[in-house]
Nucleic acid binder design. Sequence first.
DNA 1: TAAAATGTACACAGGTTAGTATACCTAGGT
DNA 2: ACCTAGGTATACTAACCTGTGTACATTTTA
Lengths: 190, 190
Amino acid sequence: MIGSSKREQLIQAALELFSKNGFHAVGVDTISEKAGITKRTLYHHFKSKEELILAALRYYDERFRNDFMRSVEGKAESPVGRLLAVFDVVEEWFGKEDFSGCLFVGAMGEYPEEGMPIRRVCQESKVLTREYIKGLAEKAQLKDAKQLAEQIILLIEGAITMAQVNKSSLSALHAKKAAEVLIQNSGPFV
Amino acid sequence: MIGSSKREQLIQAALELFSKNGFHAVGVDTISEKAGITKRTLYHHFKSKEELILAALRYYDERFRNDFMRSVEGKAESPVGRLLAVFDVVEEWFGKEDFSGCLFVGAMGEYPEEGMPIRRVCQESKVLTREYIKGLAEKAQLKDAKQLAEQIILLIEGAITMAQVNKSSLSALHAKKAAEVLIQNSGPFV
DNA sequence: TAAAATGTACACAGGTTAGTATACCTAGGT
DNA sequence: ACCTAGGTATACTAACCTGTGTACATTTTA
């Protein structure tokens, strides 16, 4: 049986709890209880809490980035338009009542041990997001597309942090205005 | 006895451990052991682990922002120069081998409960940093100083996150280049 | 039909956590 | 000389943590 539903239930329960409370603060008993599945079964699917965390992060990464890109593409057609639409999408994200910052950044904060699998998954997710932004900048035929992409990433990450700190989605608007200036300055054509 | 040295030893040991490992991951036994002070004495000075965390965050906030501002002011005289020097200072910070992201962001990630004292301390620290940046922008007589300050804050916070994720201080350079463009665009005069 | 995987229920091991109890020591102030 | 406050040392509680043992039920698949 591929993609057992129990397994997915556990991952979803874990994700909700980890997002809201952090990783160390949530025990496996709480997760299994929330999923309505015994702890023994949890350990049938994941050989340790760390494996469950890894699976949850990978699951979240896939869905989250997928939704993110689809939302961006639904908001604008042109590459430049999409580059800016990114900030509208994050603003909506910040507005959700269950928003609590970037799960990957949180995970890296709680698991600082160099080279840990958890850290690698988080880093890979960030790389893929960066690639996506870089692709948009390149399609927009802006000069210094790579550098522009880096700068836009900084604005996004900064906006995430400040949205979490201030419990406000205003940071997304500030970031968008900054991005407009940076794009403008990057020249309309290559 | 004011400002007992034992108390400070405990705070410093706690800070080192929290910075490196996070808050939940470090127990009071580890802290008292590292400080060379018995746990019973720790509980003479702080009535709970949370109180110790609060004291450590406040202690860190004071010293960190002080050092930060002094470094900035040592690097440039003009307000615009200082606005840019901020990124040189953070770059140096990222380069330290014990750098592991922003302690306050980490604390907020691990203690998400709304209105918690720990969160308030972190938020206040961010407010003060914002005020400092805003002050520089105003002294530089740039138009939209307040908005520019918000944008620069986003670049700083984004750079912190990416420095932690990629274990690289490169993000500071990208942020600085973006800041140059934003400042330029904010007009040389009001 | 039989074997294998997945599931339940529940107790338990072994370790760590925050925080306390008890008893004693020492230095300073009055 | 005495009392109080800060400190030491050690053992403890009670809760919580991850992970397992055991015995049995259900479902899948060959």
